[in-house]
Design a protein around this nucleic acid. Structure first.
Lengths: 141, 141
DNA sequence: CGAAATCTTGAGCAACTCACTAGACAAAAT
DNA sequence: ATTTTGTCTAGTGAGTTGCTCAAGATTTCG
């Protein structure tokens, strides 16, 4: 029931990018050094965030990465879903990636006790993370 | 950010055991069949729950497993921690298994933004699961 | 007592995921 | 043209997950 390093590194990297938002770009090695993250691994994370539309990048000599959206528009939930997949603790209660349980005897029935409990958990997690913006995140530093 | 099959199977097995609480014992194959769980795998789960003091067992011809505590006294949080380990999404916010982050630059500082956000998540999860009893769980079936 | 039924223990294993590494390639600046 | 950056794809070692197997211990019943 843990978040991966990917999410953790991703959030820490965004923390740095929030600071220079609207200003200069940051290069991967700058982020990596300040946040103590293996640079090639960080790269994959930054690229994923770029593909998801959160970051822009420029190659070449004065290249680097920059936030493309304002920190108020980005939530921790978004970031974690990009890097770690759905938040739901079991897939039959996921709203973004629902999947019917294959082996659960309650799958066919009208209600499943597990689903009810896990649904509450999912909602609680999503409620926090989908309302926690990067601006608040970065500001609490 | 998922719970394992172990927790899922464990909870489903306890669902069955709640039904016969105070009455007869259940054998692993009965539970396995009804809940559609591989019997040898289930066994490991039942033994873990036994070692944790939730179940009693008897060997031999009329043997089987039975709940040793009342369903009101057992919470989903307890069960999941037994089978899956701590609930916290990152170990630096775990109350039952705290561990200082090795590489985080905020580890030394007075406050860490990640810790604050993840702490809220941890509390929300624990709040639900540590108050959700097996009796409520089984009753919602 | 002895056989059958059941739990107990420990080991093993294939597939997968995680965290990271490496290397070739593309584009931008000088 | 060369250097500096990002881009992409693939690989890899360690660990975890989900499960299987086999040998043993204990209880009941005939």
């Amino acid at each position: 029931m843990k978040f991966s390093k990917k999410s953790e590194y991703g959030l820490r990297a965004l923390l740095e990018l929030c600071e220079t938002y609207g200003g200069r770009v940051l290069q991967r090695h700058e982020i990596a050094e300040r946040q103590n993250i293996p640079v090639e691994f960080l790269e994959q994370i930054l690229l994923a965030l770029k593909r998801a539309g959160l970051l822009a990048s420029r190659r070449g000599v004065r290249g680097g990465y920059a936030l493309i959206k304002s920190p108020e528009e980005i939530t921790l939930g978004q970031v974690i879903r990009i890097l770690d997949g759905p938040l739901a603790p079991i897939s039959c209660v996921s709203k973004t990636a629902y999947q019917k349980c294959a082996d659960c005897p309650y799958a066919a029935k009208p209600s499943c006790p597990l689903q009810q409990a896990m649904g509450e958990v999912r909602d609680a997690i999503a409620n926090i993370l989908d309302h926690y913006t990067l601006s608040r995140f970065a500001h609490s530093k």
